[in-house]
Amino acid sequence: MKAISRVEGRAYPVGLKNIDTDVIIPAVWLKTISRAGLGKGAFESLRAVPGNVFDDPEYAGAPILIAGDNFGCGSSREHAAWAMADLGISAVIAPSFSDIFSGNAFKNGLLAIVLPQAAIDRLMEVARTDDIHIDLETQTVTTPFQDRFEFEIDPFRKHCLINGVDEIGLTLKSSDAISVYEAKLSADRPWLAPNPV
């Protein structure tokens, strides 16, 4: 995972609630066996609408997206996070995220920042004309107009994001503890071993 500590630039002011994973990347794009190239299908149904923000040159290459409640609800497809990253988005700001999406975003170094609706409303306004700055170290979102919003983030996730930690590598350091658990499991609940199919 690549390290990330700040994001700054324009933000797509999307604002909608319940943006689901089929909106972020429709199922027809899921037949790939690679992680790259999904940006082409990102937000396809929103981009089909004339005058949408994604095709507005004003926002070209924006690294931030602002959305409403429950962003990323729906399927577990990590393709949603890959598609957004491929489009050049490094952070999403919303009042809430689906659990699976925020996990997937984290695993791909995509910041999923939770701020209250009032802050979202203000950022939507700023996004139309100016840049937005996100600083992970200080856990703040700021604007050129002295707005300053603090956000919460799990300290472990923060550490992993800032240092670009490989989570599997980290867990593999606990291999011995896993072996101990497995040994106890086969002693306590031997019947758990499945018969081969």
Partner: peptide, 16 residues
């Protein structure tokens, strides 16, 4: 519960 592909890889590698 459902998981994303990075977690699929994590479970395959570590069973946790």
């Amino acid at each position: 519960f459902g998981i994303g592909t990075s977690e699929v890889e994590h479970v395959l590698a570590t069973q946790t």
